[in-house]
Amino acid sequence: MAILVSLIIGGIFILSIGKNPFEIYALLFKGTFGTSYDIGQVLFKATPLIFTGLSVAFAFRAGLFNIGAEGQLYMGAMLATLAGIWIPARFPSLPSLIVVTVCIFAGFIGGGCWGIIPGWLKARFGVHEVINTIMMNFIAYGLTNYLVLEVFSVPETIHTPEIGLSARIPRFDALLGIFRGSPVNISLLIAISFAVLAWVILTRTRLGYEIRAVGLNPKAAEYAGIPVAKTMTLAFFIAGGLAGVAGSNFVQGFKYYYEDGFAAGAGFMGIAVALVARNNPMGILFSALLFGTLSQGGLAINTQVPKELVEILEAVVILAMVVMTELFNRWIIKQKNLS
C-alpha cells in the first residue's frame, strides 16, 4: 500500500519530465528482478543498509539518535581493511575463516569505538548525540580521506592496496554459481545473522531489557538501579560496531580495497531504513531490501531518465514511503483502539 502510493507520486514526477511512468517502472522492475544478476545486485546493495539500519535502530532503542552511522562505517571499514592487509601478510598460513572473522571483528571495533565517543559525551555531559555524531562524521571523513590519500594509497588512485586473499569474503557466484556476475557475497548472511543477534539481544537478554528501559524512560531506569550512563555508552558502542561491519560487503566482498568515499551515504540511508522498519531488527531486513531495490532500480532507468532526476525520484519515493508507513501505522493503531 505504502509502496503503491509512493509509486504513484513518483509517477507524477516522471510524467512531469515527459516520460511514460509505466515504461519507466517496467524498466525499473526488469532491472531489479529481471535476471539473477539483477537480483544479486539488489541484495548486494541491500547488505550494507541492513548493517547501518541495525545500527540506527539499536541506538534508537536506547533512546539515542545515531546520525553517525556513516562515520562509524568508514572507521570500521578502514580498520578492517588495515587488518585485511596486515594479517595475511604477516600470518600467511592462517585459514581464511579466522582472518575474515578477525577483519569483521576489527570493523566492529573500529565503528564501535567511533560510537563510544558520542555515547560517552552524551552520557557524561549530556551533549546531544545528534550534534556529536554529525561532528564525528566530519572527523571520520577527514581522517579516512587523509589515510587513504596520504598514507596508504596506491599511487595515482584513491584507494588502498588490496587486502590479502585470506581476508576476502567469498561471493555467491564463486561458491554456488548463483547471481552470476554480481558481487553479492557472504556478507549478506553475516548481515542477516547480525539482525537475528540484535533481535535476540534486545528481546531476550538482560542487557536488551536495560537498553530498552533506558531508551523509553531513563528516570524509571535509574530508579530501577540500571546504570543509565553505562548502558547508553554500551548501546552506542554496539550501534557503532554494527555500522562498522557494513564496510565488509564492499571491502572484503567486492573491491578488496578501501576506496575513498565508497559508502556514498549508506550510513544516512540507514536512518530511513530503520525508520521504515520501526526500529525492529527483523523488519530492517525487509526495509533494507526495499531500499536496495530502489537504489538498483535507479541504475536501471538511468539510460531513460537523467541521472539527477533518478536521484530526485529515489528521494521522493523514499519520502513518500516514510510518510505512508507513518500513516499506515497510525491507521493500524486506530483500528486497534476501535476494536
Binding site: R206, Y209, L216, N217, A220
Partner: peptide, 21 residues
C-alpha cells in the same frame, strides 16, 4: 509515570523493573 513504570513496557516487563537482574 515518571519513575515507577515504563509506560511502553508490558505489564510483565514492568513487574521485573529493578528485579530483572
Amino acid at each position: 509515570l515518571q519513575r515507577g513504570l515504563i509506560t511502553e513496557f508490558t505489564l510483565q516487563e514492568n513487574l521485573m523493573l529493578g528485579r530483572h537482574q
